[in-house]
Every structure is written in structure tokens, then in C-alpha cells.
Write a protein that binds this DNA or RNA. Structure first.
Length: 222
DNA sequence: TGCCAGGCCGGGT
DNA sequence: ACCCGGCATGGC
């Protein structure tokens, strides 16, 4: 059975309502958050972002001027703080040198071109790039994450071995190319994932998607 | 207490 | 082309 993506979206939206994503006061803060949240609980990212705000460096030039060791210390609560400090600086270097720190200028680049440029930055993979493009830039690219993968795979709509682009293309080929829709859909998938489809064992009883489950299914610890 | 969180990279086979 | 370990803090 092909994934009923429209149906899934409607159910999730009815069950959870608008998720108001991405949490963040500015496109720049959203972009920073996209790096900091890599494989990390959002709560930890909030504390790192607070540190940057308190230090008054939540803008491209100021943040890029912060020495690496200090930056690492500020973002420490987000975990992986040494690698994330490097990744953030790689991204900042790109924004500062190519666009003089103007995200507006950066997002004026065509979506496919900018996506390739972001992916070429060391430490920016497909999900981080798409999150930046969609949530900071408002550009219509679907963000795939571990929850999208898990929810779809556990329902048998994709294989457990489906890769990022396979899933992204599935959503984008069926849904209209609409940034607002992609925004809400991704946020809803994270929500249903957190509430009902965590890694260890799904709690399907009260899940809004429960009756879409196949009779017998194999749940793998994705 | 161990497991997990809104990834990504590098090295070994 | 896989597969796997490293990176790290904080919440339950």
C-alpha cells in the first residue's frame, strides 16, 4: 500500500493542531538551532541558544568573531559541543564570506543551488540543510528526520533501509510544493514520533495513525 | 540506571 | 557499497 500522505497529514493536524515551528526568534537563530539540534534533544539546544543570546552574539558577524574555544563552551549544553562549534563556524564562514552575513541575500539564491552549497559545508548534511532552507528561509524543501523514517517504515509504507532522498522525494512527489505544508507536516511527524513512536517501543493504542497499521508488522528498533 | 534525543563524518572491510 | 564507532549533554 502506498503511503497515504494526505490522509496522514489530515489526521495529524486534527489530532495535534498547528505546531508553530520552528521555535526561534529570527532566521539566524533558527539556522543556528538546526546545527545544534543534530541528534540532540531540543531542551538542551535551548540552553545553548540562551547562552548565545545572553552573550549578545546571535548574529552572523558577532558569532563568527567568537573564538572557537569560547563558542564551544557556550554551546556546551547542546552536546557534541566540540564538533558542533566547528560545524557552526564552517556555516558562519560561508554566510559571512559569501553573503556578508546577510541571510536575506543567501536565501535569494535559487533553492537547488543553495541546497548544494549548504551540503558542501563540512558538518551540514541533508536534514540540517533542508531545515535551514525550509524553516529559516521559507523555501519549499521537505525535511526528513528519524521520525519520518520510523513512522513510515513501521507502517510498511517504505523499507527500513529507505534513504534520505528516497523519503524526501516521496513526500515532494505526492504533496504540492508548499513551504507552509512542508513546515507543518515535518513538525507534526516529530510530534507524533515523540508522543507515540519513540525508538524503543511504539505506543500505538492512542496514536491517531493506529488504524493505518498493517495487521502484522515487524517493528525494528530504527 | 541505562537509554535516548529533530545527524554527520571518517575509517575499515 | 555497506557497516560501525565517535561525538556529549541532560531528561526520564
Amino acid at each position: 500500500m502506498a503511503a497515504p500522505l494526505q490522509e496522514i497529514y489530515e489526521r495529524l493536524f486534527i489530532a495535534f493542531g498547528p505546531q508553530d515551528w520552528w521555535p526561534g526568534d529570527s532566521p539566524f537563530e533558527i539556522m543556528v538551532g538546526a546545527v545544534l539540534v543534530q541528534n540532540t534533544a531540543w531542551r538542551n539546544v535551548e540552553r545553548a541558544i540562551e547562552n548565545l543570546r545572553d552573550a549578545d552574539v546571535m548574529n552572523p558577524h558577532a558569532l563568527y568573531a567568537v573564538p572557537s574555544a569560547e563558542l564551544a563552551e557556550m554551546i556546551r549544553p547542546a552536546g557534541y559541543y566540540q564538533v558542533k562549534a566547528k560545524r557552526l563556524r564552517n556555516l558562519l564562514k560561508f554566510v559571512v564570506e559569501e553573503f556578508d552575513g546577510s541571510l536575506e541575500a543567501m536565501f535569494a539564491t535559487s533553492l537547488p543551488t543553495l541546497r548544494e552549497q549548504l551540503l558542501s559545508i563540512h558538518g551540514i548534511g541533508p536534514e540540517t540543510a533542508d531545515a535551514i532552507l525550509l524553516y529559516a528561509g521559507g523555501l519549499p524543501t521537505f525535511v526528513v528526520d528519524t521520525y519520518a523514517h520510523r513512522v513510515l517504515a513501521r507502517h510498511g509504507w517504505i523499507g527500513y533501509d529507505a534513504d534520505y532522498h528516497e523519503i524526501k522525494d516521496l513526500f515532494e512527489s505526492i504533496l504540492p510544493q508548499d513551504a507552509q505544508l512542508y513546515n507543518e507536516y515535518h513538525a507534526l511527524l516529530v510530534r507524533v514520533g515523540k508522543d507515540f513512536c519513540k525508538r524503543a517501543e511504539p505506543k500505538c493504542d492512542a496514536c491517531p495513525l493506529v488504524d493505518l497499521l498493517p495487521k502484522s508488522r515487524i517493528v525494528e528498533p530504527l
